[in-house]
Design a protein around this nucleic acid. Sequence first.
DNA 1: TTTTGTTGCCAC
DNA 2: AAACGTGGCAACAAAA
Length: 574
Amino acid sequence: MTKLAFDTETKGFGWYDGETAFLGSWADAKNEYVANLLTADGAQEYENALKSAGTLVGHNTSFDVHQTRATLDYDILSQGAVLHDTDIKARIAIPTGQRKGSYKLKDLTATFVNEEAKAESEAIDEMAKSIGVSLKETPEAYYLVWRAYPDVMELYAKKDARYTYDLDTYLDTQLDPADQSYGIEQEVIPILTQAEATGVKIDQEVVQKLKAEYEALEQEAREPLIETFGSEKALKGEGSKQALLDALLELGVPLYRKTKSGELATHKWALQEFTEQFPILDTLMEWRKYDKFLTTYINPVDGRDVVHTSFKQCEAWTGRMSSARPNMQNIPKKAGKEARSMFVPREDHVFVVYDYDSIEVRLLAYYMANEAYRKLIREGLDPHAYMAGQIHGRPMEEFTKENATPEDRLLRDIAKNTMFAISYGAGAPRVADMNQIPKAEAKELIKKIKKSLPGYYRLNSRIRKKIESVGYVNTAFGKKQVVDKEKAYVGLNALIQGTAAQIMKRGLIQVHEATAHLGAIPLLLVHDEIVVECHKDAAEEVSALMPDALCTAFDCDPPLQVEGGIVTTNYADA
DNA sequence: TTTTGTTGCCAC
DNA sequence: AAACGTGGCAACAAAA
């Protein structure tokens, strides 16, 4: 079976809104081809070419699959061809940190395969300018450029397919055989594509209810603010940042924290310590919350039946995924968790939701290789209660969820927060902030926790040495996590988070393998959480299969564990 | 005018 | 001694 590289030229990102493709191009080992997808003949020719391939290579393949499905009503995934993606392959073979420059097709090609690629993207820019459109602003600009200069655009479309083919060939020589990462990514591609294509159903009734509710809350918070500040200039509109600052200083709020650029900061960390003396600050923070809720979470779903997010499989250098347009990975859970109730299963369907239980802590225990700490977690004891016990020199039982007094419960939570912060490489100032304790105390806390983690120093110095000598650490699956030598303190985080991200991807693959025959479709991936949609009749079976599929993604001591189950109502109840 | 940067804040 | 990591996005501000 032949290998083909393929590409589509499109009118925009909104394939689900009819912003379809107008050109399809493809390349085999020798030749390049292009077809006008707006004609029946061209569309057929493109479809036939795709169908003939045993291996298909794209750059950001998911997007082209969506475009092809939307334009030709032909689903590449149904054909069973092996899919490759040069964007993802490049990010594995030449990791972020090692590569300077972007992972765009033409940039990669110019660096590794053919220098003239760079000139072409500039030439398209020029053509766009000559007809007065901006490629950045309006994706439809590509269409307009094609209409104005069809021959040139068609030539470039063919070249894109050629570049993709040649880049793929080159990248194959750069993949490290000891690194399993690309194989994992490759299997994830079609699963994510299906998730994007299916999308998540929105309950408009709930959207409208929440919208009205939050608009009222916003109004309610706004009034006292306007009264105190003298006008609404301090809230929104031109000059509002300065106006707010002026108003707060006028009130006598002794702001002192600085932003990155040296201005006085007004973020919640800067405000919270003065709320007792100036209750209006609480109102301000509330108002911001309502405003954020409306603009960021309500707007993108207002009036939509289904949202189709776009997953970026390897965007983060740690290997984590990200989600955009809209970002489905930062829907509020604590602050305004009602937002999640807008996302619902389709009729007669349910969500089956599972997430890995404390995966970072488990991986930390695994890597520290200390039997006592491993055992603690293996036996299901609370590692944060243990840590609180170590810090305060008391038995851990006094800090467990069941036994702890409210004060001790607080101490346990501080220990927990600090654990997370440490694994992210945080220093004393940040720990002091998040726990609302003095900096000196935070420093002491960090020290005690590190000392109570048997094997922590050994692990950390091993990671630092590795970074200093080769510039990266390897995840459990061999992925290179390039770490700046100046910032070696993030090495532990790179290892833990990178490994966790890959476990999630393997879990996703196994869940798909185990449940696809039941009609289950993974819809959302939120770092350590997976949301699958399936018919209610299949729910029990899917739910029974998922824990094992997820937990066997990586064999470690202590073993992985998940929690979750069936949700019939909405995402908020997960 | 358009583009790019900054601030603040949501998630894990 | 000091250092929190990864993202996306809205709104505003400044530069081109």
